[in-house]
């Protein structure tokens, strides 16, 4: 009986190892989201054009990330719920890929009323982020909520939620063609461990 159990565990472990190997052997990350076939070509979900203002009053748009992969998240500076944890994980990614010119970072505020350019500037300074490396952006509120949908991020204004907004703590990886390739749960350091491997995979693919 014990022998059988050991054999069973061994087989399961081996199978598990095989499955894992297969996923790591698959070099390219998948393209996430809906896809359509138009005239025989597959059309993937693509993040539409955007234009926001960062903490240094610079316009940040799709041209900012031309030929780059980039990461996005949504937050607000007075958020008492998940944001600090997500920011801590974004900082881990920022530190790990510091000096990697092919990767951009952009955090959108969802509290556009409070989080003006100077408020975002102070936040970036207090996080210890030098200018130009990580864009903390604000803009038209509807446009920010609309683009959150495009990144598959849930964000809603809710008076009952802590701080007045309810939103997901996901960090999204977008490639240079503005396709969404992977995401990490910003509230879970282990998820971000895996996510950082995926970010490297995408950079290797470029």
């Amino acid at each position: 009986m014990i022998k059988h159990t050991i054999l069973f565990v061994a087989i399961v472990t081996l199978l598990g190892a095989c499955v894992q190997n297969n996923t790591t052997e698959d070099k390219n990350l998948p393209i996430l989201g809906n896809r359509e076939v138009v005239n025989g070509d597959t059309v993937y979900h693509k993040v539409p054009d955007f234009s926001f203002i960062n903490q240094d009053s610079q316009v940040i748009n799709n041209a900012t990330f031309k030929d780059k992969a980039y990461l996005v998240d949504f937050f607000f500076t007075t958020c008492p719920s998940i944001c600090p944890k997500v920011k801590q994980q974004m900082l881990r990614i920022y530190d790990k890929f510091d000096g990697e010119a092919r990767l951009g970072l952009m955090s959108h505020t969802i509290d556009t009323k409070h989080d003006s350019v100077p408020v975002l500037k102070r936040y970036a300074d207090d996080l210890g982020i030098p200018s130009g490396k990580w864009h903390f952006v604000t803009g038209d509120k509807d446009k920010i909520f609309d683009i959150a949908d495009e990144y598959f991020i849930a964000a809603i204004e809710d008076a009952n939620a802590p701080g007045g907004f309810d939103h997901s703590g996901r960090i999204i990886l977008v490639d240079k063609n503005r396709h969404i390739r992977a995401f990490g749960e910003g509230t879970d350091p282990e998820s971000i461990d895996k996510f950082m491997v995926q970010i490297q995979q995408l950079l290797d693919e470029m």
Binding site: P80, P84, K85, K87, L91, D126, L127
Partner: peptide, 15 residues
Amino acid sequence: ASCHMENGEGLRQIV
């Protein structure tokens, strides 16, 4: 812990 973190380290000069 969501702001001060589980190990009490806070977040840079924010928390």
